[in-house]
């Protein structure tokens, strides 16, 4: 089985700052293997080990996704090899464009049975890439996946739905987005990182990929902060604990919280 894990080398919002006008300053944010992607890598590795398959890490982005540090960080997650599309013209690319490039790279890799992604990226979090990617490829897409078993062409996928879980049988190639807690990902050890330095990496030229032209363009013209919740700021005098507890319960009831 040939499994592709589409991962993102994304800026960590922990060090980003939001200005008063709602603009986000990412300049201090450090890039890393996007928060939920280790889960996808873990699911892929387990499935490949169970079926004797191959796991290929795939990412697209600016030149920084192809830095030595980024390559090793990705390859230490259990991939057998990596395919990278690094081009600075992808700076600021939206979910639709990134998914189109990913799809072209998946076609380039060829004979892919399955693409697994994380739940969403840590920096943008649109949750769109898996479905747009599937749409580009003409494949089905399944989100909130919690387990994957079976063989190529006969996958058994379990996914979380609001009413519980659902089991799906999938016959053709498919894009699966893992739920955030589908698996506990292994933390790469020293041997994993050493091995990562020796794994093959294929860099694809963006211009040489077959990417259908988009019918239109999307431009961000404004950003604003979410509306802040107005708080009641109600204070309860706690000098008499019993009375304070009663007052708290009454206040919570009154607000419909209990």
């Amino acid at each position: 089985m040939k499994i592709v894990v589409a991962y993102k080398w994304a800026s960590n919002p922990q060090d980003a700052t939001v200005g008063a006008q709602g603009t986000v300053d990412w300049s201090r944010a450090k890039p890393g293997f996007s928060e939920y992607d280790p889960v996808a890598a873990e699911l892929a590795r387990r499935l490949a080990d169970a079926t004797g398959g191959e796991v290929i890490g795939l990412t697209v982005g600016t030149k920084r996704v192809d830095a030595t540090l980024a390559r090793k960080a990705a390859l230490s997650r259990g991939f057998d090899r990596a395919v990278i599309v690094a081009d600075d013209s992808l700076e600021g690319a939206g979910s639709t464009q990134l998914a189109a490039v990913l799809a072209a790279a998946v076609r380039h890799i060829g004979d892919v049975d399955l693409v697994i992604t994380g739940d969403s990226s840590v920096d943008v979090g649109s949750k769109m890439v898996p479905t747009v990617l599937a749409g580009q490829l003409g494949w089905p897409a399944v989100a909130e996946v919690i387990s994957i078993t079976g063989q190529a062409g006969a996958l058994r996928v379990e996914r979380a739905v609001p009413t519980g879980t659902q089991v799906l049988e999938i016959t053709g190639p498919v894009v699966l987005a893992a739920s955030t807690d589908a698996a506990v990902a292994r933390v790469p050890g020293m041997k994993d990182i050493l091995a990562a330095g020796k794994k093959p990496v294929e860099s694809l030229d963006l211009a040489a990929l077959d990417i259908p032209a988009a019918a239109g363009t999307t431009t961000v013209t404004g950003t604003s902060r979410p509306d802040l919740l107005t708080r009641k700021g109600q204070m309860i005098d706690a000098s008499d604990p019993a009375a304070a507890a009663a007052e708290l319960v009454a206040a919570l009831r009154g607000a419909g919280a209990l």
């Binding site: 201090r28 030595t68 540090l69 090793k72 960080a73 933390v187 790469p188 050890g189 020293m190 990182i193 050493l194 330095g197």
Partner: peptide
């Protein structure tokens, strides 16, 4: 140091040092 240390690490990698972060 948030800028200097990555620069030094890059120099190390160019010189052939195997950099192993996150360990």
């Amino acid at each position: 140091r948030a800028k200097l240390d990555p620069w030094l690490a890059e120099k190390c990698e160019e010189a052939g040092v195997f950099l192993m972060p996150g360990v």
